[in-house]
Write a protein that binds this DNA or RNA. Sequence first.
DNA 1: GTCTATAACTTGATAGAC
DNA 2: GTCTATCAAGTTATAGAC
Lengths: 217, 217
Amino acid sequence: MISTRERILDAAEKMFADQGYSATSVRKIISKARVNLAAVHYHFHSKEELLEAVILRRAIPANQERLELLDACEAAAPGGNPGLEEILRAFLAPSLRVVRDPALGGVVFMRLIARLQAEGDLWQKTVGGHFLPLLDRYGSALRRALPELSQEELFWRVHFAIGATTQALRGTETLELFSGGLCRPTDPNLILDRLIGFVSAGMRAPVAVHSLSGGTK
Amino acid sequence: MISTRERILDAAEKMFADQGYSATSVRKIISKARVNLAAVHYHFHSKEELLEAVILRRAIPANQERLELLDACEAAAPGGNPGLEEILRAFLAPSLRVVRDPALGGVVFMRLIARLQAEGDLWQKTVGGHFLPLLDRYGSALRRALPELSQEELFWRVHFAIGATTQALRGTETLELFSGGLCRPTDPNLILDRLIGFVSAGMRAPVAVHSLSGGTK
DNA sequence: GTCTATAACTTGATAGAC
DNA sequence: GTCTATCAAGTTATAGAC
């Protein structure tokens, strides 16, 4: 039998992902989790801390693994400089495991992350900080893999890449809809391959020479 | 003096963008707009219809312009087949105008769009349908610009591109934060140039040969 | 650790005077 | 078209029994 605490986390994760944080009341959560209202406040003190717990349960081990995978692939690479695709794969492999395994949250968790990321404020309050150390390590690996890019240019491309990744991992309902059912949720491995193809090409794009006075048509 | 109706729309747009739809109560909106509570229900019937009105006010003219720009660039292109960058630019030019002009909603409106897009359910209920006709026209233009891609592959790449675009137009707070202030909100034209560079390279990426049994590392 | 009961407040929406 | 007054329901959170 799963503990009360876990049942609350599971229900909250699903409902925050499906309906958003503020649209999900603690009462809806407890009714789904079949627990008592006071149990939530006993275990998590407040709704906001509950959200934080929901995310950290998954994000802490995944980020730990991301660091280890980067270490491993730097150790294996010639000169300690792995290629762009390898770096992207090290970062995304834990996400892929999460998506594949419902016990790790599955797509539900990725949808929640996507949602929070779009909200900005909540993201920073809850988990933003837990991703900053990652950024350091991965940032410097990327700089060595793409030495022709200025620091600024690199940041912009990482920014775009985060957008594409979020979209890819969020789930495919929108895509299924607008592709008329042609694109269906196939093997997540395949999605990852496509994503890495897209992102690595984008990050290697020739540096644009920007017109001095703004777009000349 | 701006009409009551417009004042409500302006306040609602800003607050929905900043705090999300369900975290924004009608009462917070009326206090910002300095109007009466009943005025909202008089003009818009319900909170949900208010959201719809907020979006359609901007989206209808912008989408109209997107169609006209595509017509124009197809008429000008040799064989009626404009290149990838031209198509992307036609689609994004109206977004750029919105971002540049606070009177058209500015970044605020784009932030709202990004948020709704991440929410999925609300998106489809409110505006999803208004983008479908666009998809048809732009989809076929893209197919002609990238004939080497299968229909399915193309849809996936459009999906990723939407993610990158959403991220780019949402505003640069996150980017500023994690770049340590190096990337600041410069000329939106420049952002657009970078985005188009990234996305067009991603869409032209070589088609990956996927391993038959899943990732072989 | 789990429960009931309840406090204290906010929510979207409407009726009806002007 | 604009207002006040009010409804019925739902909100987070806590006190205190077991």
